[in-house]
Design a protein around this nucleic acid. Sequence first.
DNA 1: CATTGAATCGGAGGGTTCTCCGCTTATTTC
DNA 2: GAAATAAGCGGAGAACCCTCCGATTCAATG
Lengths: 200, 200
Amino acid sequence: MIGQPPPERADAARNRQKIIEVASRMIAEHGADQLSLDEVAKEAGVGVGTVYRRFGDRAGLVWALIDEREHRFQQAFLSGPPPIGPGAPPAERIRAFLSAVVDRVMDQEDLFLLVELGSPKARFGGPYKVHHTHLAGLLAQARPGADARFLADALLASVNAYLIRYQRDERGMSVEAIKSALDDLALSVTGGPPTSRRRG
Amino acid sequence: MIGQPPPERADAARNRQKIIEVASRMIAEHGADQLSLDEVAKEAGVGVGTVYRRFGDRAGLVWALIDEREHRFQQAFLSGPPPIGPGAPPAERIRAFLSAVVDRVMDQEDLFLLVELGSPKARFGGPYKVHHTHLAGLLAQARPGADARFLADALLASVNAYLIRYQRDERGMSVEAIKSALDDLALSVTGGPPTSRRRG
DNA sequence: CATTGAATCGGAGGGTTCTCCGCTTATTTC
DNA sequence: GAAATAAGCGGAGAACCCTCCGATTCAATG
């Protein structure tokens, strides 16, 4: 989403590609929390300085890996079929979106966990801004008068990778149960049944 | 809240005290993000191994510092005067509690920021469990039939230190505005006005 | 091609977190 | 007191993140 005034040099592009390949493979083999940038550099045959020049820091590299699958996800909620895409009423799109975010996070759970313990810049950068803008737009329609941007942050905070993992592993909730509870929360926020509610 | 079968030895207690003192002073002088455990150890006149034996890791030490003010806060919502303490209706206590949590986080903002980038064990340990149990209890009363424990996690996720700081510094929201929006969210969740609502 | 200057590379090194384990000390028991 | 033993101590060192900057390489130009 940012223009690159001078196009990337050939060797730089080659190295970026190689680094991403190696990092993906090492994560698949040893798990994301074992990822050492020193080792990635050595394995990719470049200096560690090159890794940092290309990706800024550890979280930057992780975002690059996340981005590979992110585009398809964004297509779905920006221009895909309802209920997540345009066409369904806002409240319904919100619920479909949140459910999809849960799946999205589970899909690359380790990577999202890593990103979330990076710097704030990393946490709220990357795809977060896109998700937030989208959700805030829908909320503004579904619940005019409320602070849509705050609510968007609050809902996204409820689907952060750490919390989901905690609820799954420590509280023994299934992913379905999490989605159901989230659905209930979204219903409340968008003006659903005030005190009773239909079954999940 | 955990029994300690063998009481702590005198030298160990002395060292714990000394380490906490030194850490508090160093944070007051240089800021929490500059806190180096090596330096704390040297300054306290103990080996770095002693620091880790006593506090487990960096986040453990930070919790110990947070705990010093935590007790007074817990008194307030467990047995203090309404609306945060017993006596007020649950929905009102929830809103008062959330507002107080925001103040609590702002009070030791740097420390909460540090804790939140520790391991999950650190994040959901310590005071978190107490806050969660309290909030879930109130939610179960205010909104029977809903998944109170999930909702408690979701609301607490909305008041995490990173998010508050982000809203304050990047979005330019005042603490009052944050509290007001949070109040709105809590009203929705506890069965407040479905779509319109009174002004914050 | 040869030149040239800007972009890129790479790895030594500073600073940090945390582990490991032989040595020391407090406390209990006789 | 002295001996026994469990707990605690401490610092060397492994592993890691990231910075810095001289050496190198690319690609545009004549």
